[in-house]
């Protein structure tokens, strides 16, 4: 055995614990969920005592279930609004601005990172207060200062509000990744452009942006994937309401499995959402050429 092939074997050996743990606690349960999706398994009733194989019945029901399509659409808008637009734009702005020699850089940096460290449930509670209805809620007082009417935010603009909250949570991640991307743009290129008399906007569009594009796509892939599976803070904030307006997939699935007790149907939702995100993932990898 050559030392190279022995080294390759050793590599597999040290990957083994990770692979085994993921297999046992993530992949196996996920496969089990796939099996459940073909049964009438439930948490109560006869489906709990003797789950039966029901073929594609759960999937057939899914296709005709308006609530599921609503949830899929809400999730799409949620990902688009928070991960792809909100977090990205504010994260990019923060990264670009903090890349300049400004005073109080460290302070701004620390404040923007702060929400990222907030546990999901706490994020929910904090924003219950910010978005409280009536004239005494914080956001209402702010808009009243601008001469607008106070609102019952979580009832009137529920989806927008959970997008606002998730954007708040995620600016930091975008900023970290994009700062890193910016720091890999060679200074010389930038300086050469300034010499040539290019305006800052032009430099950003023509030079910086193309150079950090791979970082942007990698960020998009990771943030899209992790936003689809969000559950905790929306559960604490709205539990999917009012009337399904914030019922993102994680919440819809939880409601199917633990409120309606339909495990099999809930599992079918999980499988279909996995397929959808697989498509999204393939689009990112193929069309946008995210490299690994």
């Amino acid at each position: 055995m050559t030392y190279q092939s022995r080294a390759q074997w050793q590599l597999r050996l040290i990957l083994l614990p990770s692979a085994a743990l993921l297999l046992a606690l993530v992949i196996w349960p996920a496969l089990y969920a796939v099996w459940l999706s073909f049964t009438n398994a439930a948490l109560v009733g006869p489906g709990a005592a003797n789950p039966r194989f029901v073929g594609l019945r759960n999937y057939a029901r899914l296709v005709g279930d308006g609530d599921f399509w609503n949830s899929l659409m809400v999730t799409g808008l949620f990902v688009l609004g928070s991960a792809i637009i909100g977090q990205f734009v504010l994260g990019l702005v923060s990264a670009v601005l903090l890349n300049r020699p400004l005073r109080f850089r460290a302070v701004f940096n620390a404040i923007i990172l702060l929400p990222n460290a907030v546990p999901e449930v706490v994020a929910g509670f904090l924003w219950i207060s910010m978005l409280a209805g009536g004239e005494r809620g914080v956001l209402s007082r702010i808009v009243m200062g601008l001469g607008l009417q106070p609102q019952d935010w979580l009832n009137t603009f529920p989806l927008t509000m959970i997008i606002v909250v998730n954007t708040w949570r995620g600016i930091a991640t975008a900023m970290i990744l994009l700062t890193a991307g910016l720091s890999s743009v060679p200074k010389e290129v930038h300086e050469a452009a300034v010499m040539d008399g290019a305006k800052p906007g032009q430099i950003f569009r023509m030079i910086t942006l193309p150079l950090i594009l791979p970082t942007i796509f990698l960020y998009m892939l990771i943030s899209t994937v992790s936003t689809i599976s969000i559950f905790g803070f929306v559960y604490a904030l709205t539990r999917g309401g009012p009337g399904g307006a914030t019922e993102i997939l994680g919440i819809y699935l939880y409601n199917q499995s633990f409120t309606a007790y339909q495990l099999g149907y809930g599992a079918a939702v999980a499988v279909v959402s996995l397929v959808f995100s697989l498509i999204v993932g393939v689009i990112y990898v193929r069309a946008l050429k995210v490299e690994v």
């Binding site: 349960p29 969920a33 599976s229 559950f231 699935l253 499995s257 959402s273």
Partner: peptide, 14 residues
Amino acid sequence: LLIRVVPPPALIVP
């Protein structure tokens, strides 16, 4: 990476 899109509630019972 993609397994991360499965919301945790789906995995609880298994």
